[in-house]
């Protein structure tokens, strides 16, 4: 792990605010340790900008261990960069070569307006969950945890879907900027578990309607979301959402 370093150029999107016109600026990133994470590389560039009294590049980040879903940018045309199943904070500079120019862009989607530079507003995801991504149980109403057994397979499948971190890479990667994978993952998690069943029909309709209202596109089965997802959420969640939707679409008891 001893100190190998590389020199890079980064071509990064700068945009002062939601209504401003953005443009690319290019900066040198010198003596970057190959053991640094991508965000640490951005820290180094930002420190340098600060030293020259320039405003650093704004980017969202928090846990830096791949679970909070806060970070994300399109790096060289790929959401979260070149390493599969990896968030931007867990991407390390050893994946790049000395002399590379790296293009860094924010998530681009009508549903995710740009706040500043690489920071986007993902509150649309919260509103999709508000539309129905919950079980209507109040604190204190719950029966004993063992009152309803859940088959292991169902619990495991629910967990696969629930692993979503809400980072938005699926939207960013989709040619249609569709939020289907995000929406479908929550619908699937709750459809797999008996606790989610009483509301499953109204849930799928309300969440899909909200997804549309937020201005996301539809799913044309490009599978780009699955390829970009740092948690490897599968397109089969969308299959499942569609199945749930069909059951609810014509159902008289919605």
């Amino acid at each position: 792990m001893a100190g190998k370093t590389i020199n890079l150029k980064i071509k990064v999107w700068r945009q002062a605010g939601p209504e401003s016109k953005g443009e690319f600026e290019t900066y040198d990133a010198k003596n970057i340790s190959v053991d640094a994470s991508f965000l640490e590389m951005l820290d180094v560039v930002n420190n340098q900008l600060e030293r020259h009294d320039k405003e650093p590049v704004a980017f969202d980040h928090d846990c830096r261990e791949g679970i909070c879903g806060m970070c994300g940018a399109v790096v060289n045309g790929v959401a979260h960069g070149p390493q599969t199943a990896t968030t931007l904070c867990q991407l390390h500079m050893r994946k790049f070569k000395d002399g590379d120019t790296i293009t860094i862009e924010p998530w681009r989607a009508k549903g995710f307006p740009i706040v500043k530079d690489l920071v986007v507003d993902r509150s649309a995801f919260d509103r999709i969950i508000q539309a129905g991504g919950f079980v209507s149980v109040r604190t204190g109403q719950a029966p004993d945890a063992h009152a309803i057994p859940v088959p292991k397979k169902a619990a495991d499948e629910a967990m696969d879907a629930a692993a979503c971190i809400g980072c938005g890479a699926c939207v960013a990667a989709c040619p249609n900027a569709s939020a289907s994978l995000f929406t479908a993952a929550k619908i699937t998690q709750l459809a797999k578990l008996p606790q989610g069943h009483p509301e499953r029909k109204t849930r799928v309709i309300a969440m899909v309607q909200q997804m549309d209202k937020e201005g996301f596109g539809s799913c044309s089965k490009h599978y780009e979301c699955e390829a970009a997802c740092p948690k490897e959420i599968k397109v089969s969640n969308i299959t499942n959402m569609n199945r749930e939707y069909m059951k609810a679409m014509l159902s008289p008891d919605v």
Binding site: V74, G77, V78, A109, S220
Partner: peptide, 27 residues
């Protein structure tokens, strides 16, 4: 749908590399 899908990405990427399994037929 195609019109809505186009509208869903108002500003285009400078670079957008597709890394999934989509074939030319899909595109």
């Amino acid at each position: 749908l195609a019109r809505a899908n186009r509208a869903a990405r108002k500003s285009r990427y400078d670079q957008h590399n597709y890394v999934g399994r989509r074939s030319p037929a899909t595109r």
